[in-house]
Amino acid sequence: MVISFFFDNEQIFGQKAEEFVLQWVTIVGGFALVLGVFSIVRVNARAVAMKSRDWPFKLMTVVSVFAMAVPAMLPVSKSSNGGKVLFSIIPESWGSLFGTGPNSIYDWLFNYLDSPMMETMFAMLAFFIASAAYRAFRARSADATLLLLTALLVMLWRVPMGEAFLRLFGDSVPDYINTFIMNGFNVAVQRGIIIGAALGAASMSLRIMLGIERTYMGKG
């Protein structure tokens, strides 16, 4: 990857090296998927059969795997692969339930179960931000007070009503906040952290390549 960054890959390989590697990743990924499904079913089915701790959850895992995967793989019409056999058993109008298209079982499970659960967790972030902000912005010291005032200005600038309020003190006040706080102090600090982190990552990569750093393999 390092070498391919400095050379014209199309001249050497006839195609982009990344695309070439990605094709292999897709092939290996396909085999890994089969292995993964086999593994998850074997581990969880054994736990269910032995009624070990939390077995109802393990049963739910196995049921969920098949509930999502099987309808998505079934043919959607008679012209699809295996469609003639399936639709000689069940009405063809049921075809819309299969596959991954709109109103399919897969789509329904994704939109009305998986997605809302993830969104609920993500939405909780608003409450966590409120409690963290309350602790961080308490004016206990000069530094914390400065942070509080800066945050107050930025928050006002970010919402239309706050921006209108800031304009009462002068039309350029919101622009000053953008120029000095966001594009000035904020960007300068962020770039400092990013440059430091990039050097740290490069140094660590070098240590790994040279075998100095081997802790991540359980050695050293």
């Binding site: 602790r135 430091g196 740290g200 660590m204």
Partner: peptide, 19 residues
């Protein structure tokens, strides 16, 4: 987020230096 909620935070390169 980490600075607000944690007792200690390693920033950027400190993470790579920690080991």
């Amino acid at each position: 987020f980490f600075i607000a909620a944690c007792d200690y935070t390693l920033m950027g390169e400190e993470l790579y230096a920690a080991s």
